[in-house]
Design a protein around this nucleic acid. Structure first.
Lengths: 345, 345
DNA sequence: TGTTAGCACTCATGTTTATTGAGTGCTAAT
DNA sequence: ATTAGCACTCAATAAACATGAGTGCTAACA
């Protein structure tokens, strides 16, 4: 167990290092107002903290730097909540005021805002569409046997596909088919849509003419394909990565930026098993090599108890956890409110 | 006017520098197979070329490096066409084979492909939607007075907006309105849609009940807004930027990557006055500070004589112009063919 | 007269050597 | 238990030097 003084020193080291990115030495610390004891005492305590694995020195004659365990301890025990400044709260409110009632834009907006609040790169994982329920299917014929099929969910989410049919179809036949599909499938979650539509089509084909077989086939393929589309990830504040001193080296910067652009890779990362709390992972805890020098703060957002997606902030291990956590908490609130207002998507 | 020997030397310098990124000296050159004269002679010629402003030296005792004018001359006079390797052509064909018949994907795909071919970052400016003509409007009511309006163009392009109406509307009223709108507005270019719809609505409102005034108002706002959406830009091969030795310094890399993410900034850049040729701009010729160390190759693509958008490759001034130009030419062909097949978008 | 060998000169780059100073650990005195 | 004091370490910076790739110029050559 750590003594109060050790806690004070550890917190001071982490705080200082977060601010300056420079190893912090005993003399520097001894000059702080809240430190009443001498640098020699600090050195002794530091030696102990180092033995416990909470801090380390880059080399013999350098100051101390928090180790990963040090950050972990800091995050778990030493962070004092703190709040957003009035200005930030105002910014948050006014910025949301402008946001459209389309959820796509709202999400993009949220990502930007989170970046701006934290000065780190922000990620927002959009809601999985599998849970959405079908509201309406519309089939719109174009020239040349091409057909646009539009799918609207109960939440107002719209998807569309274009397909080309080898033969023209009679309007009556398609109308009949669509009416039937809409009738039978309304309310089906997108995740089941593929299967349901296959069943329905089989029944339909046995009852009806060969002509619509073509269409039904195409529909089946197209709509079951929808299901596979993974939710998208929105980025905000990408440029903040450039500001971090630890990423001034392109070799360090590159893997992070590359990972961030890779939707697939991020997907795993953004859908962690996660109690309804905020999850902070530090360096190697991320289990992703590209993020071994980064820390990530994640939180799920939900509406009416249904978890929909994830907010995340990504920065160097020497991240301002306080600010990150606070920003994400506040934004989470505002964002969820906004989402609920829009009708959940 | 340059002598043949000077041309040979200039070309050799540029070629060499493109390959190695190292200043090239007279001795190195004299060892090439196609050089029959001595390093001293080369030095004399180099002095002349330098006097003409075609090459320069980073410092007194370094080799020579092409100046911007040097690249310009090289591009204008010294490039020999060359072709893609068989493997590349095959890759190109097979990759397009997989591409969906949605133009969005086709374009994204093209951007990736262009990046892969050139090993530079590629940009594709999507077609302006202003020229598209309206094919169909569909209005789909959701719960809570929310309404999704879906717009389909003759080319199969789909846009949608969600709006919230303060009062519920009768099905008949909306059906009547939509039928009329579809009838009147079909074939209207999106660029004119805002105006047309305003006119039409005015007429309509005078004829019909107050109730639909709400809807028509909303529609007017929503649809005229569409017009403002600028065409999007697709990126491919972003990561190749990291490979360039000239961008190993974050300070150099940053402005370029930042610019590339900025849709608005790129828009100007991607819509240049451009004869139907390929346009190459080198360094300061780009008139964009962030690109002062870059060269850009651009080409418009068109279908049936209508210019639709732009392909571009962006790399260091020391870019492999040959490869860039060839790739863009071949891809341009393939892409346009594919687009025509899809029906122009 | 154009070409080339030769040579002095330049200057980025790399290596070695000192110098400095921020930091530590340990010990002895308080 | 705390702290002053001191010897020690080592990154960082600077200065001194060597190296070598490159140049420009001149004089000899074909």
């Amino acid at each position: 167990m750590l003594t109060d003084r050790q806690l004070l020193i550890l917190r001071a080291i982490v705080d200082d290092y977060i601010k300056t990115a420079q190893p912090v030495g005993s003399r520097t610390l001894s000059k702080r107002d809240d430190v009443t004891f001498s640098s020699a005492t600090i050195r002794n305590e530091m030696a102990d903290l180092e033995e416990m694995g909470l801090i380390e020195k880059p080399h013999t004659s350098a100051g101390r730097v928090p180790s990963e365990s040090g950050y972990r301890f800091y995050v778990d025990h030493l962070i004092q909540p703190g709040t957003l400044t009035a200005r930030e709260t105002r910014a948050l409110r006014s910025l949301f005021a402008h946001s459209a009632n389309e959820n796509d834009r709202l999400i993009k907006h949220t990502a930007d805002l989170l970046g701006e609040l934290t000065h780190y790169t922000a990620l927002v994982l959009g809601p999985k569409q599998e849970q959405h329920r079908l509201h309406h299917l519309e089939l719109i014929p174009l020239a040349d046997g091409k057909v646009v099929i539009v799918l609207v969910t109960e939440t107002g989410h719209v998807e569309h596909k274009t397909l080309t049919l080898p033969e023209a179809l009679s309007k009556e036949a398609t109308d009949r088919l669509m009416e039937r599909l809409n009738h039978t499938l309304q309310g089906t979650p997108l995740s089941l849509l593929g299967k349901r539509i296959a069943e329905e089509m089989q029944r339909y084909r046995s009852e009806h003419s060969e002509q619509t077989a073509l269409l039904s086939n195409a529909l089946e393929i197209v709509l079951s394909d929808q299901r596979r589309e993974s939710p998208s990830i929105y980025l905000g504040g990408k440029a903040y990565m450039f500001d971090q001193p630890e990423f001034q080296d392109v070799a360090k910067l590159r893997p992070v930026l590359e990972l961030i652009e890779k939707q697939e890779a991020l997907l795993d990362f953004m859908t962690p098993e996660l109690d309804n709390q905020i999850l902070i992972t530090i360096g190697s805890e991320n289990n992703v090599d590209a993020l071994k020098d980064c820390s990530v703060i994640r939180a799920h957002y939900s509406v009416d108890g249904v978890s929909l997606g994830t907010l995340a902030v990504i920065g160097p291990k020497r991240m301002d956890y306080n600010r990150g956590i606070n920003s994400i908490i506040h934004l989470l609130q505002a964002f969820q409110t906004e989402l609920r207002k829009n009708g959940l998507d």
